[in-house]
């Protein structure tokens, strides 16, 4: 959506579903989102400041922030917002834009990688293949960070999971994976090249 109210916004930074300028302008910076956020203390930029950056059109700062990747999507902020601003929706939209622009905060590589691998996984299988997900994810993190021990982190859990019959070596896949693939194609991020 063209953010005309804010003038200087490069529109290609914004996904189509970005909360409308009016929504963002509605925020009066009371900070109730930050107050209730379970992870705000870990954020480089507090939730209310993320919305503030959106109000100011400071997209570069918003899209490169770590905060958008710390957000757990619990919806507490949106639920309690006195101005009914969908703060969690702002976070979602910023993540999507950040990824599309290659601006995702490198410190939060693992979160980004996990989400991406998760989606690739369901695109291939229709349903989640947990083992494959874990394998891909670990490999990706290790290749990126060089932290070999990460491969074996939680490895102790594997036999425990096995013992509890929680590891499915041959999980079910969706029957019609063609349609899943087509849905993914049709939903490809609609940004300008």
């Amino acid at each position: 959506m063209e953010n005309q109210a804010l003038g200087q916004v490069p529109s290609e930074h914004l996904p189509v579903h970005f909360p409308s300028p009016i929504q963002v302008a509605n925020c009066y910076q009371c900070g109730k989102c930050t107050a209730g956020c379970p992870v705000a203390m870990h954020m480089d930029v507090a939730p209310n400041q993320v919305v503030r950056l959106a109000q100011l059109g400071e997209w570069e700062k918003a899209l490169r922030s770590r905060a958008i990747w710390e957000c757990v999507g619990c919806q507490t902020c949106s639920t309690r917002c006195p101005k009914e601003v969908d703060c969690a929706g702002v976070m979602d939209a910023l993540r999507e834009a950040s990824l599309a622009r290659g601006m995702a905060a490198p410190e939060r590589f693992s979160v980004v990688a996990f989400q991406k691998i998760f989606l690739e996984n369901i695109r291939r299988n229709g349903r989640l293949n947990e083992l494959e997900l874990i394998g891909h994810f670990k490999l990706d993190v290790v290749l990126h960070t060089g932290r070999i021990p990460f491969l074996f982190k939680d490895a102790g859990l594997a036999p425990q999971l096995g013992k509890r019959k929680k590891l499915h070596l041959i999980p079910g896949k969706a029957r019609d994976r063609g349609v899943v693939n087509r849905i993914f194609e049709r939903c490809a991020s609609e940004r300008k090249p």
Partner: peptide, 25 residues
């Protein structure tokens, strides 16, 4: 029979449209 993944957190974090399309399917 023909259920697929709902997209979970990953979809609504990364792709709004997909996060609607998967459960819509």
């Amino acid at each position: 029979k023909d259920w697929i993944c709902c997209g979970a957190t990953a979809a609504h974090s990364l792709n709004h449209k997909l996060s609607l399309a998967l459960p819509a399917r």
